[in-house]
Each structure stands twice: as C-alpha cells, then as structure tokens.
C-alpha cells in the first residue's frame, strides 16, 4: 500500500466500507478483535511522528497483532546503517506488515521491492500519505454524505504536502471537486499555471475559494518554509491564509473544517476554528485508527505474507 494514485473507485470504496465496520469495533467496550492474532506489524518510522505512529499502533493492537517499533533515533540507523541494511534486518525479523515513514519520497517503494512483507506507506517525503487521504475521505463522507458534486478546499503549503496529494487522489475519484489555495510560492508551478489534475482547480484568493465550499482542509505550515524565503513572515501568512471564524463563515452553513495535525494554532488555523463546532479534527484522529485497521486487515488479515501476491517479484530475483 504505497500510494492511492492508481486505485480504482472500487478499491477506495472497499477500504471505506471496511473502515465503517472498524469504527464500530472501536466503539465497543472491548476495542479488540482477534483477526490478526499471531501477526507482527513492524512500525518503521525514520521521520518523527506521533499521531500516525500511535494511530497505526492502536490499529494493529485493536486487531490483536504484535507490534514492534523501530525509530531512526535510538536504532542502528543512527550508527549509520543504510536503508538497505535496515530492510534486510526487517526481512529477517519476519514482520507480516511493515508500516514505514521516511523523509525521502519513494523510500517505501525501495523497501517494498526488497521485502516479502506487505509495506504500508505512512508518509514519504513530499510524495504521498495515503492513509491520511483515505481517512480524510472517510471523515468527509461521514459528515457530508456522498461526495459527488461537493467542493472541498485545501489551503496551505500545497507544494511540500503529501497530504494534499493523497487527499486529491482519494477525494476526486469519489466525485468531489477540489479547490487548492495557498501562497503562489507554495503551489507547484505547473498547477499554478493551470496544468492541474482532473477535478482540481487553483484559486489564489482564499476568500473566493471558500465562498460556498462544502468543507476545508487546512495544511500544516512548516516553520522552516519562512527561513527558506518562501514566505515573508508567519504573521502575514496567518493574516492572508489562516482560517479564522470569519473566513470559515463564507462556506456553506455547517461546512466542516479539517486539519491533518499537528496544528500550528494561530498560524494556519485559529484556535476558535480548530476547537469550534465545525471542527472534525478530533474525529479525523479517531477515524484514522479505523482506516488503518481496515488496511491492516485487508493486507494481512487472511493469507500468510507469502500468500499475498506482491506486485514485486520475490527477493532472490532482484538480487
């Protein structure tokens, strides 16, 4: 599960349907089902992350899998172990599923080609964060009903955002129209100039993008973007691109506000919006566990790892 960019509508719908069943499990007094008993899920996070890692850990445990955590700090990666060596170790340890986050785009592909375990991309560089895209789609569909014809605004640092890309990959096939908005320096040049994927538009004025919208997703602004000269100041960003109560009021009444977290309150989103009645931010966190349960179940629930017809050829053939 490396990216959702080539998923069919049927595949997306299957995962979202399974997610609904998992949400119900999480509402039980005993939030645990035995489906992955005896399976091992390795969480390999080479980039800092709290919520995604904890979310995957809770998801794996809710399905009774054993969980092993490997982080870059405090592991041999710090001693200079290469990614390939780490992969060989993971392979020898025999995890059924490797969940990985890496700061280099494409790193999960590298790992997936060299291991027989199923690999789930938990965020790679600027490229993709497919479980976030799926959980945002689930959360939006739960709040709005069918997404056909609905207009979703994504605002912020589009250029460096794997969340924006993964949201587009799941929301557009479900029928939503996506309006991107953000500082021109933080939007890919081709997209700024009109070379946009189907179903996506770019609106440089946030107020105009929000007029009558059905939902908005604010992206996290990395503070280092200012240091690298892409932004004049955080204050200016907050004034022009921050979600204030006034701004979100331009959307359809009750239209929800989402954020993948962690939030910079007061920069891309005001506290009053983040914790207001429109906010689905906490719901996103809960649904995130359910989406990840659904994926772990679909990847490891039934067959043994060797029985999973991996897209890549077996190890020895690749040398």
């Amino acid at each position: 599960m490396l990216d959702t960019d080539d998923w069919s509508l049927e595949e997306i719908e299957t995962v979202l349907d399974q997610t609904r069943a998992m949400v119900e499990i999480l509402s039980r007094p005993i939030r645990r089902a035995p489906a992955l008993r005896g399976r091992t899920v390795i969480l390999f996070f080479a980039e800092v992350s709290t919520r995604t890692r904890v979310s995957f850990e809770l998801a794996a445990k809710a399905l009774s899998a054993d969980v092993v955590n490997i982080t870059a700090t405090g592991s041999s990666v710090e001693k200079g172990e290469s990614l390939l060596d780490t992969v060989r170790t993971l392979q020898a340890l025999g995890g059924d599923v490797v969940v990985m986050r890496h700061s280099s785009s494409g790193a999960p592909y590298f790992v997936a080609q060299r291991t027989e375990s199923a690999v789930i991309n938990a965020g790679d560089g600027w490229h993709a964060h497919p479980t976030q895209g799926l959980l945002d789609a689930y959360t939006l569909r739960d709040a709005l009903g069918e997404l056909g014809g609905k207009r979703v605004v994504i605002v912020g640092d589009i250029l460096h955002s794997r969340v924006a890309r993964s949201d587009i990959n799941t929301l557009v096939p479900l029928g939503a129209r996506v309006t991107l908005s953000g500082p021109p320096t933080l939007v890919p040049a081709a997209w700024r100039c009109g070379q946009l994927p189907a179903g996506v538009t770019y609106e440089p004025l946030l107020d105009r993008a929000l007029d009558g919208a059905d939902a908005v997703i604010a992206l996290r602004l990395q503070r280092e973007r200012q240091e690298s000269g892409l932004l004049p100041s955080l204050r200016e960003y907050s004034r022009v691109w921050g979600l204030s109560l006034d701004r979100v009021g331009r959307m359809r009444p009750g239209a929800p506000v989402m954020h993948p977290g962690p939030m910079n309150e007061g920069i891309e989103i005001d506290a009053a919006v983040a914790h207001g009645s429109r906010s689905l931010i906490e719901t996103q966190v809960t649904n995130g566990v359910a989406v990840r349960m659904a994926l772990l179940y679909l990847l490891a629930g039934a067959s043994t790892p060797s029985g999973v017809p991996a897209a890549a050829a077996p190890l020895e053939e690749r040398g």
């Binding site: 119900e24 489906a35 179940y297 629930g301 039934a302 067959s303």
Partner: peptide
Amino acid sequence: TLYRDDLTRIGYAPVVRES
C-alpha cells in the same frame, strides 16, 4: 468475520460488515 478461526486459511480477506 474478524473472529473466524480460518482467516489464515482462506487466502483472502472477506468483507467485514458492520455489527
């Protein structure tokens, strides 16, 4: 579905419906 004792034998993941 998630409580089946043959999940590891049937070779694919059957659809889980909501309880």
